[in-house]
Deep mutational scan, measured.
Amino acid sequence: MDVFMKGLSKAKEGVVAAAEKTKQGVAEAAGKTKEGVLYVGSKTKEGVVHGVATVAEKTKEQVTNVGGAVVTGVTAVAQKTVEGAGSIAAATGFVKKDQLGKNEEGAPQEGILEDMPVDPDNEAYEMPSEEGYQDYEPEA
């Protein structure tokens, strides 16, 4: 019985440690998101679009440190934060509304985080759909 109880105690310690790591990862992701939003706020009209992409990228980098179902929630929060940063930029006159959601080359930025393969159960990952990809044929 002692062996059984000791095993359960060790398992509990492992769960607590994993929860603490997840909590730490979420806190880091939130900190990076805040950094990115402050970065966007300090940019001029020309830099705002690039700044919004930076927020998304920093958040995406930190999301990889967070495991399990938390990833889905962090990704949703990050996307809403990026959308909010863009709205703030438009409201303050840093950028025109028609410039939001495009990178410096004018290509749409939507789907940055949505296409990231995420499995809350950590069982399997699927690649994003290939609808947006084109076949590449090298020139002879």
Rank of each mutant, 00 (worst) to 15 (best):
G25R: 14
K58D: 01
T72V: 05
K6R: 06
Q62Y: 05
T64H: 12
L100D: 11
Q24N: 07
A30N: 00
A19V: 11
T72S: 10
I88A: 03
A140T: 12
M127T: 04
K32R: 09
V118I: 04
E123S: 11
E20T: 05
E46W: 05
A56L: 14
F94H: 04
K43P: 00
D121N: 08
V82N: 03
Q62E: 04
L8G: 00
V74T: 02
V118N: 13
E35G: 04
A17Q: 12
P128L: 10
G51Y: 10
G73S: 14
E105S: 07
A78E: 01
K21S: 08
V48N: 00
G68S: 04
V37C: 08
P117Q: 13
S42D: 04
Y136C: 06
L100F: 02
G73P: 02
E46P: 02
S129K: 05
K10Q: 03
G84T: 15
E46Y: 07
G51C: 14
G132W: 07
V40L: 13
K60Y: 05
K23V: 05
T75P: 01
K102C: 06
E126S: 04
K58N: 04
A89S: 05
V49H: 14
M5T: 01
V71Y: 15
A107F: 06
A140C: 15
G31V: 03
G106Q: 05
G36R: 13
V52N: 01
K96Q: 08
E83A: 11
G106A: 07
V95W: 14
K60H: 05
D121F: 12
Q99C: 10
K10W: 05
A107Q: 05
E35P: 01
Y136M: 07
G41Y: 09
V55I: 15
A140F: 13
V55A: 05
A107P: 07
K34F: 14
E13P: 01
V52P: 01
M1W: 00
G51Q: 08
V37A: 06
G31C: 01
S9N: 15
E20Y: 12
G73Q: 12
V70L: 10
K45A: 13
G73Y: 07
A91L: 14
G132N: 11
A89Y: 10
Q99P: 03
G84M: 15
G47N: 11
A53N: 11
Q79P: 02
L100S: 13
M1L: 00
E123H: 09
E83K: 05
E137W: 07
V3Y: 02
L8V: 04
E20G: 01
E130M: 07
Y39M: 07
E114S: 12
A30Y: 14
E110Y: 07
V16I: 14
I112A: 03
A107N: 09
V55R: 01
D121I: 07
V82G: 03
S9H: 08
K34R: 12
E131R: 08
V3H: 03
A89M: 11
A11C: 15
T64W: 08
E131I: 10
A89W: 14
V40W: 03
A78I: 13
N103W: 14
